[in-house]
């Protein structure tokens, strides 16, 4: 449906469930993809599964220098970065009263600060070509809060405010900046939940099931497309009705 032929997309956290699905979906639509992540092996595996038009670009997002270098190495290997998907994220859950400065800082650094650095690194090129798509993967938790996740929720809410501000600044250059906010998605992380936890979660979801990574990827694909050129500064909630925002 959406054609991304000739577009180059950089996806962070591509070794994870959601990031992998996003990369596959953009690739299937014709884009060349730069797969970034900390663990090289799953990135290599995904690249060989995709075949042509896939580049492996390992990067540790808690290393500021490596993050600053990533947009350039992506542009060097693909020719440009037309689409940036900031999907990588970490959690360090703890109740707020016990949350250490380190737990707070590491989550903000990886989830929010690295997103800022990557956005900064790709926007000049996008301005030049008068076309760009930035999709930041937030979370339902950024809008609703969640006990034990003050750091994570702050980082994901921060992403929304930052995206809107950048969206204002670059809209006149054909660049859109949007967020996708997943609810509970079936991934390696949620597989670890026990049956009691799962049924507790499902009770809060009108759709009565968890979401699939493909359903997040579809939202990202839409926001990356030419057709979504008039959509900017918004957050697309993909959560089975869990929070109707």
């Amino acid at each position: 449906m959406f054609d991304l032929t000739g577009k180059n997309a950089l996806v962070t956290g591509a070794s994870g469930g959601i990031g992998g699905a996003i990369a596959k979906s953009l690739h299937e639509a014709g884009a060349t993809v730069g797969l970034s992540g900390t663990r090289v092996e799953p990135l290599e595996a995904l690249a060989s599964e995709l075949g042509d038009r896939a580049h492996v670009l390992p990067c540790n997002l808690s290393d500021a220098e490596a993050v600053t270098a990533l947009p350039k190495s992506a542009a060097d290997s693909m020719g440009s970065v037309d689409i940036l998907v900031n999907n990588a994220g970490i959690t360090r859950d703890n109740i707020f009263l016990r949350m250490s400065d380190e737990e707070w800082a590491s989550v903000l650094e990886v989830n929010l600060t690295s997103t800022m650095r990557l956005c900064k690194g790709v926007i000049r090129g996008m301005m030049k070509s008068r076309w760009g798509r930035i999709v930041n993967i937030s979370s339902v938790v950024g809008a609703t809060g969640n006990p034990g996740q003050a750091n994570y929720a702050a980082s994901k809410a921060g992403m929304v405010g930052m995206s809107k501000s950048i969206a204002y600044e670059v809209a006149s250059r054909g660049i859109t900046v949007n967020c996708v906010a997943p609810g509970f998605i079936t991934t390696a992380m949620t597989d670890k939940l026990n049956d009691d936890q799962k049924s507790g979660i499902l009770g809060q979801i009108p759709a009565g099931r968890m979401g699939e990574a493909d359903e997040i990827a579809a939202a990202v694909l839409y926001l990356s497309s030419a057709e979504a050129g008039y959509v900017t500064g918004t957050t697309l909630h993909v959560n089975g009705g869990m929070a109707m925002l």
Binding site: R124, M127, K128, E169, V170, S172, R173
Partner: peptide, 11 residues
């Protein structure tokens, strides 16, 4: 010029 234009001029 707007502020973004000045960035583009420098580029």
């Amino acid at each position: 010029a707007d502020s973004l234009d000045t960035v583009e001029l420098v580029m």
